[in-house]
């Protein structure tokens, strides 16, 4: 019997997800033992043609990380989709847009202008911008275009499963892959991780009083957090309540409140809006002026606070065709 075929690919991502794969450490050998890695450009020399040559549906599992920001990403994931039985969106960027998705708060033009002209470290007197087509010494080169927005993977192709996290933990990765290889197939659309929020598994949950009432909010850099006490009750935003568990509460254990990388739970439409709602609810200020003042002083930044990983999913766009 031939071994299951696995493909790994990255799109707009930082490389952390690839690191996470390597962090499987010894288990990586078990994986290589169990499967045939047929495509993994970051680790081995695979070309697009290699993929094109494969029969449609011949790859068992394609694990794709990163968001879709370039034409190239779009083409490649569409190709991978065609060649694969199962596609997994791996990590926050593929799942929700992730950190690169924060760029969606700005139009494409503004990003290019800043990156190529205005950034303090840039020297570009001729204001040269990357061009789709360019001719050098009579030879024509073509670059993949920078798209209008970053899209999570499932807005470009059909996705079967999600492994969340920035990056996903090696244990969760291992659990998910071994489940799929053993034929334990969850329903389509399943997000690996816990079905409950991080609070449920948080080691500090015990210390949380039944009622939380925050007299004021603080930014994490303004306080020395007591690491033995629920961070939210100390007045800092912890995304734990609004974030899927399954990450082993690594940030919490490391002394940082949760920033929400595992994304929302089932039934939550918009992680950021929900985070805003729960936080606003437990602030114990009834005087609107005082409240506005407090937010002002904190440099209130709802996108940064609540949408760190989910802006590409949670941003308001008009669906194509609606605005006519």
């Amino acid at each position: 019997m031939s071994k299951p075929k696995v493909a790994l690919y990255w799109c707009a991502s930082c490389g952390g997800c690839e690191e996470a794969t390597v962090d499987l450490t010894e288990r990586l050998f078990d994986l290589v033992e169990a499967v045939d890695i047929v495509f993994w450009p970051i680790a081995m020399d695979f070309k697009r043609e290699d993929l094109e040559k494969m029969e449609d549906g011949s790859i068992d599992i394609a694990i794709i990380n990163g968001g879709i920001r370039f034409e190239e990403h779009e083409e490649m994931v569409k190709l991978l989709r065609r060649k694969s039985k199962i596609v997994i969106a791996y990590g926050s960027c593929a799942h929700l847009g992730g950190i690169p998705g924060l760029a969606n708060a700005y139009p494409r033009e503004e990003i290019l202008k800043f990156a190529y002209e205005e950034a303090p470290t840039v020297i570009n007197q001729d204001r040269v911008r990357p061009m789709k087509k360019t001719t050098v010494d009579g030879m024509e080169f073509e670059l993949p275009d920078f798209l209008e927005y970053l899209k999570p993977l499932d807005e470009v192709i059909d996705v079967d499963y999600y492994i969340p996290g920035c990056p996903p933990t090696p244990d969760l990765t291992w659990e998910a892959v071994s489940k799929l290889l053993s034929g334990e197939i969850p329903p389509k659309g399943h997000v690996f991780g816990s079905d409950k929020s991080l609070c449920h598994e948080c080691p500090l949950n015990e210390t949380k009083p039944d009622e939380i009432k925050l007299e004021e909010l603080k930014r994490p850099h303004q306080v020395v957090l007591d690491r033995s006490k629920c961070y939210l009750t100390q007045g800092v935003l912890c995304m734990g309540p609004v974030t899927r568990g399954g990450c082993e509460a690594l940030c919490i254990k490391g002394g940082m409140p949760c920033t929400g990388c595992f994304g929302p739970l089932e039934g939550v439409y918009n992680q950021g809006a929900k985070a805003l709602s729960f936080l606003a609810s437990v602030i114990d200020i009834e005087d609107e002026e005082k409240y506005r003042e407090m937010l002002e002083k904190l440099g209130f930044d709802p996108i940064g606070w609540f949408f760190r990983y989910s802006l590409a999913k949670g941003m308001i766009y008009r669906k194509k065709g609606d605005g006519e």
């Binding site: 899209k151 499932d154 807005e155 766009y317 008009r318 605005g323």
Partner: peptide, 14 residues
Amino acid sequence: GPLKLAEREVVMNE
């Protein structure tokens, strides 16, 4: 006038 937001084609899974 109408909401001026970028239109985005949402294809899958939503």
